[in-house]
Every structure is written in C-alpha cells, then in structure tokens.
Design a binder for these strands. Structure first.
Lengths: 210, 210
DNA sequence: GAAAAATCCCCCTTAACGGGGTATTTTTTA
DNA sequence: TAAAAAATACCCCGTTAAGGGGGATTTTTC
C-alpha cells in the first residue's frame, strides 16, 4: 500500500479530546504517523505545506474557516492529499457539499476507531470510503422516484428539457416532430401542474422524476 | 440487528460457480439463510414474492431481463427488500444507473467474501454499503471542477440558468437587475465559448462547473 | 492605484414559449 | 379482442424572452 512509505496524517479538529483520541489511535498504527494536529484550519493553514500530509482528517464545524470552506483551500495547497471529513452532522446537503468540494471520504463521528484506520488505508489505495449511513444518504440522493406520474416518453422529454434544449432540438434528438414534443410538454405541464419549463424542471428535480 | 430474525437472502446470478460460491458463503453464516438462487431474473420473477427475501444479491449482466431493468421490478414486487448489485462492471454510468434505479449497495466482484457478509448486515441495518472503489466513482461524480474559469457570481448565475429560470427570475432570486443578469450571461457565454443556454448548461455539466 | 468583478442601461430582431383545440396511429393491458 | 393509454402530428394565436451589439459605473481585490 502506498509505496511502503509510512503515511503522513494531519488532524484538524477543534475538540481536543476527539483530536487527541484520533491522534492516539493513529500513532498506535505502525503504517501511519501523525505529522500534525490543529484545532482549526486557520491555525494550521500556513504549516500544511511543510507537514506534507497524505491524508487529512477534517472536522466540518471548525471555528473560523469551516471545514467545508477549508476543503478547496487545502486541495489547492496539497493537490495530492486526500481529505476525510469527520463530523457529527449527516444532513444530505452537508454530505453532498463536502464531497462536491473535493473530500475523498465522509464519516460520522460515531464510526468506530477501527473503521477510521481502515478508511485511511482505503483513501491511500485510491478508494473513497463512506460510512454505511453516509453512503445511504448519498445513494438516496441519487435514487429516482419509482412512482412518477409521467410516461416513459414524457420522462425522456423532461430530461431533455432539463438540459435546456428547445423544442426543435429535442425533436431532432428523439426523431419526432416538433409538434409532438410540444404535445408531450403540454401533457407534462398538465400532470405536474405547472406551466413553464423552469417550474417543470424544479418540480422534477425536487421529486426526483429525472 | 434486524429483529433477531434470520435474514432471508436470494441470489440472482447467471454464473453457477459464482452463484454457488456466494450461496455457500452465506449458508455458513448463521445470521442469514439462502432462500433461493436463480440464474436469471426471468426465471425467479414469479417466485420472488413467495421467497420473501430481505436482501437480494443481484448480478447486472443477466440473460434476458438485465439486472438493471430488474431492480425496479423487484422493488415493485418486494418493496421492503434491499438489493445489492454485484458485478464486474464499474463504469460510472452503470453504477449511477443501478443506484438511481433503487439498488441499496454496489460491489464489484473482486470484493472479498467477508465484505459481502458485512455489507448484507449493513443493508439490513439500513445502511448503503459501497465498496471503496465504487464509492470513489460515486464521489467523483459528485465532485465539482476546482478550476472553473467562471467567477463566483457567474457560477451562481449559471446554476440558476440550469434550473430553467429566465433572466427576470434570476434577477429576483439574486437581488440584482435583469440587465446585470444579462451581462453575466453574456460573459459566461464568452468564457465557455458557447452562445445559448442549452450549450452553456451542457458544457457546465460536462465539466462539472455546477 | 491598477485590475478584476459586479453592477446597470439602451437598441434591435428573431424565434421560442405556452395556451387553445383536434385527430390519427401504436402499444398496452384488461 | 376490445377498450384504454401512450405516442404521434397539425393549426392558430399573442407574448416575451433570448441573444447580439455597444457603453458605463461602482465595488472588490490584489
């Protein structure tokens, strides 16, 4: 794993007990070493480049710059490092935002120590560890509504509307007449109880019809 | 876990060796029992309701109805069951499609037996297990491009364009003048080298600017 | 203090949008 | 196999948003 080198870990977490807990845990693992711990991103910022961590355990709710805001900044400083978010929050938005920002993994703090150690190994191996509950949230965010009121064709057309295409573009794409597209769109509006593209798209996304 | 009941597992996999391998593996785990195994969805379809599996291990590449097409059908028959996809394919599209269709977990076939057993436990506990490589793919699909050519405001406006809103709606949303929106949109088009909303949206999605 | 970003204004033409109504052919399903 | 649902296509209409052109000012940021 990872070139036989001992992997360098940095921990950024404001709660001292938790921070030292993780540090202790990792120090007891021969494959990893803790190169630094910080109580906030702002405190560690200028030293991170010198620390050269391979993996950063990052808390989301930090004083000053939040963990979420820190992610892109860290990646700019250390493009080859991986970030694992560790937090008590597990709202869908928080999780998706963290991953969108560039975090490699996401664990809730109730995750057992052993799993954190495994997770560090997984990111070093190029994987993207997610705790089962987090993964569940991510998966749910991807899942489509099974009970759409729309027909297959209508769903297809709605998807095209969602890409910003106009009627004629959709017609070309689906090998049908522009008028047919128009009829479908009208029926979509009727079924979704809306009367514009933007409303239809907003409704469709909210209800995961597309 | 799961009410102290022995969890009922069904395996749908066309390769007999693999199928029996999993069956053997699970039969050796006291918490689970294999209630049925099928070489294809079409063969098992009519019996699934009687089998009442809690978890279905489902291969993607099946003869006849594919595993992907089978997911929504299975969920219709057994709304309380969970599906774990097991496959050699790990393309982003395949994974996202399977999860979108309603699968609870996704593992590549190189996953160790022990992890499959753990994964079954996780779905029974309401989690969504993903193997690290699959999770990585999912995470990557969520990640945004860190080097967008657009400014913050432009990105914000592009996101609004993506929802199908028109200029005046965006203006209202962002508390700025319609004309300002127009200017931003013009600059976005210039930077992305496009000249319509649909092109801008398509480009932005492809390059994960939004 | 210079550069970049964000704000706002006017003119113009084209064509896309959405609402109205009607009708035929496939496909599905009961 | 008959009825229902889905997919296809056409016409008329008025409104208005889109995109291209050009110019200008004020904030932010570095």
């Amino acid at each position: 794993m990872y070139n036989n080198q001992i992997a360098r870990i940095t921990i950024i977490e404001d709660d001292e007990t938790i921070r030292e807990g993780y540090a202790y845990l990792i120090r007891n693992t021969s494959a990893y070493e803790v190169v630094s711990t910080y109580a906030s991103f702002d405190l560690g910022k200028s030293k991170l480049t010198a620390d050269r961590p391979d993996v950063i355990l990052l808390d989301i709710q930090l004083p000053g710059t939040s963990g979420l805001e820190a992610v892109p900044q860290i990646l700019k400083l250390l493009p080859n490092s991986s970030i694992i978010m560790l937090t008590v929050y597990e709202t869908e938005k928080m999780i998706l935002d963290a991953l969108a920002a560039g975090a490699s993994g996401y664990f809730t703090k109730n995750t057992s120590s052993a799993k954190i150690i495994v997770a560090i190994g997984e990111v070093l191996d190029g994987g993207g560890p997610l705790s089962p509950d987090v993964a569940k949230t991510v998966i749910r965010s991807l899942q489509k509504n099974q009970e759409s009121p729309l027909t297959k064709r209508e769903t297809q057309i709605l998807r095209q509307l969602d890409t910003g295409k106009d009627r004629s573009e959709i017609a070309l794409e689906l090998f049908i007449d522009v008028e047919t597209v128009k009829t479908h769109v009208k029926n979509i509006y009727l079924k979704l109880n809306v009367n514009s593209r933007s409303e239809a798209i907003a409704f469709a996304r909210k209800n995961k019809l597309i």
